[in-house]
Nucleic acid binder design. Structure first.
Lengths: 198, 198
DNA sequence: ACCTGAACACCGTTCAAGT
DNA sequence: ACCTGAACACCGTTCAAGT
């Protein structure tokens, strides 16, 4: 009758999280995770239906980390707030590349629960962008900005931009183009005088 | 002494290409590729050092496909040329998602040869952007644009943007913001009158 | 109730043996 | 020269048997 649990769901996910960042997704094997919590691989199937379910739980933990990393109280400059959030986004992707990439990986099966978590995590970003664009354009603007941030982060992570020098000016150029348009085009460049008539 | 080759490197890569698009990267196993060319898995090791080398050859084939899909003769409107290239970029990613994604996958080991192929494939895009920005800003602008296109394509492929309706207006918004900045800010929006003095 | 060893199907990879 | 079966280490997963 004694059946002492040797571990917990949370401990399993935490072990998976450590393995992910240390070894990449291929290092998150059922055997390695089990060993990290002092158990044999078959025991994990009492807690998670299969490896995909474990990865989905890991994804949930990472989305929470990510949302916390993006979070900051709004200041009085909406442009600066969004720019700062963009910087935090990049910092997270750079600091924890495997965790970041798992959120976009096909290894995490797409379910309604996954989608709901992402929407919840995106809400503060949407709100910050809305302060810049108004509510009408907030969704489109957030999508465009997120695409840009994700594209830059993932290309940098996968080794693109390895030549031709510093990618920072390129990042700044694209970001300022987006923010300027979102804010109504009067932000980071003075208007030039009208061109002379033809 | 007879030792008739049953297949060729090109046939192996072509079989891998078909498997990739049909089943995703996990479907590209040495056994499945071998079976597709009428051979047993160990024979593939006479042609490719290991699965990573096969994937590198597959990547080369895909980069060539991609470059061909982007290619088009320049017209007389540089903005329209870049916008059209962006549309072809998206079309490729949408039509052949697994092929597209392999180019950014960690499964393809990063080597100097891989990097050289990518630079060659990016040259026409760089040239098209240079017609818009001048040579000084062309590299930064191409990087920013590529990040945006890649981000949008990969988020759409991974199922983001599944809610809140059509992602097309978001794509158009971000693209026009980038192109307007690249072209010097006078493209898709009329200047507003100067704000009244404070 | 939870844990375990043994087993199965499936990988990538090596290698001695065939022709 | 190229191909093959057999073998090995390693996966994910199942299940009967232990406590």
């Amino acid at each position: 009758m004694p059946a002492p649990a040797k571990t917990t769901d949370a401990a399993v996910v935490a072990a998976a999280r450590r393995l992910l960042e240390a070894e990449g997704p291929a290092g998150v094997t059922m055997q390695a995770v089990a060993a990290a919590v002092g158990v044999r691989a078959p025991s994990l199937y009492k807690r998670f239906a299969d490896r995909a379910a474990l990865l989905a739980a890991l994804d949930a933990a990472i989305v929470a980390e990510f949302a916390a990393a993006l979070d900051a109280p709004p200041g009085d400059d909406a442009v600066a707030d969004v720019a700062a959030m963009a910087a935090r986004y990049r910092a997270f992707a750079h600091t924890t590349p495997h965790g970041y990439q798992l959120m976009f990986s096909a290894e995490v099966p797409w379910t309604e629960a996954v989608a709901a978590r992402r929407r919840a995590a995106a809400a503060p970003a949407l709100a910050a962008v809305a302060r810049l664009t108004g509510p009408e354009r907030a969704l489109d603007a957030t999508r465009a900005l997120t695409a840009y941030l994700h594209g830059f982060a993932s290309m940098q992570a996968s080794g693109a931009f390895r030549f031709g020098g510093d990618p920072e000016p390129a990042f700044a150029l694209g970001l300022s183009a987006l923010l300027a348009r979102f804010a109504g085009e009067a932000v980071s460049k003075r208007r030039r005088p009208a061109p002379p008539p033809a």
